[in-house]
Write a protein that binds this DNA or RNA. Structure first.
Lengths: 106, 106
DNA sequence: TGCCTATTTGGCCAATATTGCAAATAGGAG
DNA sequence: CTCCTATTTGCAATATTGGCCAAATAGGCA
């Protein structure tokens, strides 16, 4: 594998890795409904607010979300709604796996 | 967050996490061209064959690939070509980030 | 059987990721 | 300025990951 391909793959992997976490998936789902402040997202996720803040910081660093400071709150928005399309594919993979398991049993 | 949602999110995250790794992305790209045996994939990735085998095992465990043992070789195939659609979205995120950086400088 | 090739598994280590707590920062209101 | 609320940052503990090596497993062939 040449160095250029390696770099490109790692850049892509960073973005996909950001999506591959249950808390961050939940955050993305919440943001799909519209902008939310950190406190609201924290309620939804159920972790410490500092943890959620770090998840948001990671999502922002890879370009998936954007933040907007208004007053003493920070509102996050989904910058790449196309990630929502991932979910359909993921569901189809899950469904196919269930079908496969049923076939193995039967 | 209720327990059921948590479980669903984690199932999804496992699949997306499997895609969020440079070596596994490369494997998926290779498999997009058609089935490949472990040795061929190992050449493409450049890691130890045992490492590649583990990557394949992970990809299989989440249902993204399938294996087919023929003779003393194992051929892997891409089970969920829809993951290839992720790449377009990822590229758009990368491109948008570059644009954003250019705006920050200018 | 024994030998060769292909792949997987187990053990281990280094690097990275996730989390919470506590402290720091920032903004608004009195 | 002080106080209060919202968020981020620093730190430490723990968990997970990715890698290689060595050993085990499996299949084909003599």
């Amino acid at each position: 594998m040449d160095a250029e391909r390696q770099i490109k793959l790692e850049a892509r992997a960073r973005i996909l890795k950001a999506v591959g976490n249950a808390s961050r998936l939940l955050i993305l789902e919440e943001l799909a409904q519209g902008e939310k402040c950190v406190a609201d997202l924290t309620k939804a996720v159920g972790s410490d607010i500092s943890t959620v803040s770090k998840h948001l910081s990671l999502l922002k660093s890879v370009g998936l979300v954007n933040d907007d400071k208004r007053g003493n709150q920070v509102f996050y928005t989904l910058l790449a709604p196309c990630v929502l399309n991932f979910f359909d594919c993921v569901e189809s993979v899950l469904e196919a796996r269930v079908q496969h398991q049923i076939e193995m049993i039967g």
